[in-house]
Design a protein around this nucleic acid. Structure first.
Lengths: 173, 173
DNA sequence: CATTTAAGTCCATATTATGAACTCAGGCTT
DNA sequence: AAGCCTGAGTTCATAATATGGACTTAAATG
């Protein structure tokens, strides 16, 4: 392995970086936890509050931020013979956080989990477990050593830090 | 589409959820931004500080937290004829955040980006752009409508909120 | 009409962040 | 040898947020 050069600045300024923008938008403990619950279908103020034990004032502010960002929607609805209530469903923008969140779940399963994870995805077609992978334009998974970083059409010195699916060396081991 | 039932609790308690654990560990604006820079190879205290303009005291605390979590390592190193310095390289645990971060980047490109994104991944083998996808055990991408949630070996009512690769309806449009 | 439920707001206290200045050690310069 | 520079922090006063509990409002229910 060659000596890694010292890199003093990232090639993408935080202010032009969509990852940094995402983190500035939703990189907050409560927002992320609210969104996790929302992914499972939780939609009501008091349900978020009870599940997460988040202070009501904070929840109120975070939901407003999420609505503001377009990730959630605030909607009145009325169940059969009930009075009208407020709900906060995810918008499409919010629902599409599913993939990053699932990738993060896999990371947590590997590095923070103890025992079998409670949650996973499965193919309805063949019952197989699903995982997140990098695929090319034809949907073909790429070998980790074939992954290149590209910044403004140019290959960036480093490779993808680590995608080796090295044989589950679990924390517990 | 059937009426979505009201879901009052997520099927995985936050305290048993590896996603929630991940968020509790690194779900913090500065940590995430530090990790973003670290993914590009930034490793030194002053470089993080200058790039992110994070208060030095906060940076100090966050780096300690990341080291503590096992995501970064604190190491002395000495360049040719220089005095010894401190660096904070990612551990394998840290490098493996690459995939969730890239998934998040794609989300940001779609929903927060203006114009062409600055960063992407490419296959060295055939030059094709790479993207994040859900694949089955054989590496075959699954159709969005075939995705099932599984909680403790049981199928959970809802589907994956949204994986439809619906024709790029960009914010800018 | 009193209660209950849902969805908040208000407010005093506690915690954390911010920004600027300061420290400390080693190597470099003159 | 004395002073200067750099990297990696620490310290501290002030500012901003979070926390937790009580309170509010509105509609439905007994």
């Amino acid at each position: 392995m060659t000596e890694a050069p010292v890199i003093r600045r990232s090639p993408v300024k935080p202010s032009d970086c969509n990852l940094a923008r995402s983190f500035e938008l939703i990189g907050d403990r409560w927002m992320l936890l609210i969104l996790r619950s929302a992914m499972y279908g939780v939609r009501r103020f008091d349900d978020f509050q009870a599940e997460l034990d988040v202070p009501r004032s904070v929840l109120s502010a975070r939901l407003a931020g999420l609505v503001d960002a377009g990730i959630m929607e605030k909607r009145e609805y009325r169940e059969e013979g009930q009075r009208s209530r407020v709900e906060y469903p995810l918008t499409k923008m919010g629902r599409q956080l599913g993939l990053p969140f699932f990738a993060m779940t896999e990371w947590g399963d590997r590095w923070l989990g103890e025992g079998e994870p409670h949650f996973g995805l499965r193919s309805r077609a063949n019952g197989q477990k699903l995982r997140v992978a990098l695929v090319d334009e034809r949907g073909k998974p790429v070998k980790p050593e074939d992954i290149q970083y590209v910044v403004d059409q140019r290959v960036w010195p480093q490779e993808m830090p680590d995608q080796r699916a090295d044989k589950a060396r679990r924390k517990s081991g």
